[in-house]
């Protein structure tokens, strides 16, 4: 999930399909990247459960997967913890720098 969302093109794709279902070609027309590259992004998003995919003749249509929003919420609930882990790291590093090394920063 994190990897699927880490790419700016993929986030842009999700914003595009928020308004409704779009064909792969329509999505690709918003990017400078090759259709093959966009297709790869679509596959990653579909595998992550964020996009639903269906075929209409030769066209492949993509929509935001409403089921996928729950994983998004789950993922977002990991974002604050990630920031707090960073806080922990920063505070503990700063303490090592400023305070004399009276404590090794590691528990017995």
């Amino acid at each position: 999930m994190l990897r699927a969302l880490a790419d700016p093109h993929r986030r842009q794709i999700l914003r595009l399909v928020r308004g409704g279902e779009l064909a792969a070609g329509e999505i690709a027309s918003h990017f400078d990247a090759t259709q093959q590259a966009v297709s790869h992004h679509l596959q990653v998003l579909a595998r992550a459960g964020l996009l639903s995919e269906r075929r209409d003749g030769v066209r492949r249509l993509y929509a935001l997967d409403p089921q996928g929003l729950d994983p998004v919420r789950e993922m977002l609930s990991e974002l604050w913890p990630s920031a707090l882990e960073r806080l922990k790291y920063v505070v503990e590093q700063d303490r090592k720098k400023t305070a004399a090394p009276k404590r090794a920063g590691r528990k017995p």
């Binding site: 977002l76 609930s77 604050w80 913890p81 920031a83 707090l84 882990e85 806080l87 922990k88 920063v90 505070v91 503990e92 303490r95 404590r103 920063g105 528990k107």
Partner: peptide, 17 residues
């Protein structure tokens, strides 16, 4: 959303962040 972390420092050290 809730999140929690344990930091090896006092609240007075953490608060300024």
């Amino acid at each position: 959303l809730t999140a929690t972390v344990r930091i090896g420092a006092s609240p007075a050290d953490v608060f300024p962040y």
